[in-house]
Computed example of a mutant assay.
Amino acid sequence: MRSAEVSAKISRHLERLRGWLAAGLGHPRVSAVTVREITAWRDHLAAAGGRRKDGGAVAMAPATVNNHLAHASALFSWISAHAPAALLPGGDPTKRVEPLRLPAPEVRALNAAQVRTVKNVLDRLESFHHLTGRRHRSGGRSSTHRHARPLRDRAIVHTMLGTGLRRAEIAGLDLAQLEPHEPDQLRRVKKAKLSGVRGKGRTSRSVFLGLDACTALADYLEHERGRDATADSAALFLAASSIAARRPDGRLSPRSINTIVAEIGAIHDLQIASDDRRLGRLRPHDLRHTFAYLLSQASGHNRAELERRLGHANERYLKLYTNPPEEIAAGYVEDL
């Protein structure tokens, strides 16, 4: 019932547990796993469970450590239900291991000035990918790098900024979910939407698209997507066909969405002189926070509308998403 990506993540997490046990005990037999071992594994992940690009150890985020614990707990719950009682004489060793306390969520919504300059960069995104030199110009028009897909990247960011979709939800979109999906109709229609968006917890929802997203999607579908599509390409957003390591169906991975958004953030900051508009590292969830805050303002903080559009009912995160950016919050105090 799980996607291939989620199954692969669970396998990686359990393989880390197997490696930890084998290194510490000399074998990975589940009958030897105790509360002490699971606790030590949790603490190891929190201190040095991650890896930098150079291969060095780095601390894992508490949420990632807790995700590992959840997958280990699911494994031992399955073992407890199906294996002989003698296999785990002490019972499920994960039940008495407390997850790490999560830090207070950080508000990442962009302020109005940042949203304006991000959209300005998106309007000019093609120009940043042009190759320089006379030999790259034909008919007065500059060519772009063969892997570059500026119209796709522009459409992705406008869609995230205008719908609050998560990166995995963006990567999982199919062309058939876009209504309508003909470029000329997208430019004319008053109500375009993405139907059946698959979210966390096997939820499904529909989201409406604004003018910016519709225009950007129409441009991408008309001028770029056809270059990368094959008969098996159901995904809305496709990786460049010139990339040898792309998936057989061409679908972008969630990590690719991270890279695309971060690169646009880097271009933005190179164009901006004032420090108060700089983004630092732009992440997909920053766009989700921005959408949620603007939706909260526009809907009068309507909880039902926020749950429906964000696909999230957790009170903790609804409060986070709807907190104002620091500049706006500071303005409240200044006016008192």
Rank of each mutant, 00 (worst) to 15 (best):
R309E: 10
L209M: 05
H68C: 03
A155R: 13
A168P: 00
P105F: 11
Y321I: 05
P248C: 07
R303F: 05
S7E: 13
L165Y: 04
H82Q: 05
G196E: 05
D335V: 10
A83P: 07
L279S: 03
V30E: 00
L279A: 03
S253T: 14
M1S: 08
Q114E: 12
R309G: 06
I328W: 01
P324A: 13
L175R: 14
H312K: 01
H44F: 11
G24I: 00
S206Y: 04
T144L: 06
R101F: 12
L209A: 08
E182W: 13
H223K: 06
R18E: 02
A239L: 05
V157S: 08
G226K: 13
G91A: 09
D269R: 06
V189H: 04
N314D: 15
K9G: 11
I170G: 03
R246Q: 06
S7N: 11
L125S: 13
I10W: 03
D335A: 14
A330Q: 07
E179A: 11
P284W: 14
Y317D: 09
T64C: 07
G26Q: 01
R187D: 04
Y332W: 12
D249T: 09
A63G: 09
E106N: 06
L131G: 00
Q177C: 03
I243F: 02
Y293K: 04
S274M: 04
L131K: 04
R134G: 08
H268N: 09
A113Q: 13
E126M: 11
Y220E: 00
P150M: 08
E326Y: 09
A266D: 12
A292S: 08
A57P: 14
K190E: 14
S204R: 15
E182H: 11
P324G: 02
E126A: 13
L25F: 01
G196Q: 12
P254Y: 10
P254H: 12
L217R: 03
A72V: 12
G162I: 03
L282G: 04
T64F: 13
K191E: 14
L87Y: 12
G56A: 14
R141A: 07
A329G: 15
K319T: 09
E327D: 14
P28S: 15
G139E: 02
A235L: 06
D123T: 12
Q185F: 10
L217H: 12
L151M: 05
A218H: 04
D43G: 02
G56M: 05
L186A: 07
T159P: 01
G172R: 06
L287K: 04
G49Y: 01
H312C: 12
L318S: 06
K191M: 10
T117I: 03
Y321M: 11
E224Q: 12
V121G: 01
L110W: 10
L221E: 00
T290M: 07
V333K: 05
A104R: 15
L282F: 07
G172L: 06
L294E: 11
R101G: 10
A298K: 13
N323R: 14
A113D: 11
S127A: 15
D54S: 02
L209Y: 11
